[in-house]
């Protein structure tokens, strides 16, 4: 049994059909990277998986549970699905530490001390123990995103969804965030929408190429980068390597 199974997901906004039947699956601890031009529904797919935008059709199974079942308590499920945003979305009125601990306290029912102790551990994991007392507006973009990752990690998710986690960062800050993500590989499953081809090549177990609301091709990085089957995939990878460089 796969850990995550996405079966024939459709999603429309008004007349615009953004996802036209998406199916794929992931195993425990696996890292999958979704690539493709902007506006092909990659972010929408992530938001369908944690039901921020429930899909119109299709099913999503997580650890053998159909989480698209309307009877399910979605807030329970979301604890198992971490989410990291392009624009960070840290809680502006809370310190880095409280950003990480508030979910533990209010959602998981931890005591304040226990929640903050775990939060410190998570901040250590992303290399930000010294910034615990700082507020989001006092952190750099890269630091904000690492707090965002720590916030997701704290809930002990089975999978974390990353929605272009480095796109809003200055180039020199991207490395730190990617390093943190790399260190998580095989410890927690990650589904990453990104344009960082180096990360895709080196860390991913599976690359998924999306275009026009469907999956054009998927496979291990080696096959996808060196020997893509579809012409569209080849064209896209050729274009992106001139845009973003080989690595």
């Amino acid at each position: 049994m796969h850990m995550l199974e996405v079966k024939d997901i459709h999603k429309s906004y008004g007349d615009l059909e953004v996802l036209k039947g998406i199916s794929f699956s992931m195993n425990k601890g696996e890292t999958a990277v979704i690539i493709g031009t902007s506006g092909t529904g990659k972010s929408t797919l992530l938001r369908c998986i944690n039901q921020l935008h429930p899909p119109d059709k299709g099913e999503i199974w997580l650890d053998g549970v159909n989480i698209t079942d309307p009877k399910i308590d979605i807030n329970k499920i979301r604890q198992k699905i971490g989410f990291v945003f392009q624009e960070f979305n840290l809680f502006n009125h809370l310190t880095a530490l409280r950003n990480v601990s508030i979910g533990l306290e209010k959602v998981k029912g931890f005591t304040k001390e226990k929640a903050e102790k775990k939060a410190i551990e998570e901040l250590k994991r992303v290399g930000l123990k010294d910034q615990a007392k700082q507020y989001p507006a006092q952190l750099s973009g890269g630091q904000k995103q690492r707090v965002g990752i720590a916030r997701a990690l704290a809930m002990d998710p089975t999978i974390i969804l990353f929605d272009e986690p480095t796109s809003a960062l200055d180039p020199e800050l991207i490395g730190d965030v990617l390093d943190v993500m790399k260190s998580l590989a095989h410890k927690v499953a990650m589904l990453v929408v990104t344009h960082e081809m180096g990360f895709a090549r080196n860390v991913a177990d599976e690359i998924i190429f999306m275009e026009g609301g469907v999956i054009v091709e998927s496979g291990p990085p080696k096959q996808m980068f060196q020997n893509p089957k579809k012409a569209r995939t080849k064209e896209f990878l050729g274009r992106i390597s001139t845009l973003y460089g080989k690595d």
Binding site: N89, F91, G103, V107, A152
Partner: peptide, 21 residues
């Protein structure tokens, strides 16, 4: 709006998100 969205992704209910965030 990202503040509310982020609160919901860590599993807070709408009411919890309003109250805490």
């Amino acid at each position: 709006s990202g503040q509310m969205v982020a609160a919901r992704t860590i599993g807070m209910t709408k009411l919890q998100s309003i109250k805490n965030i």
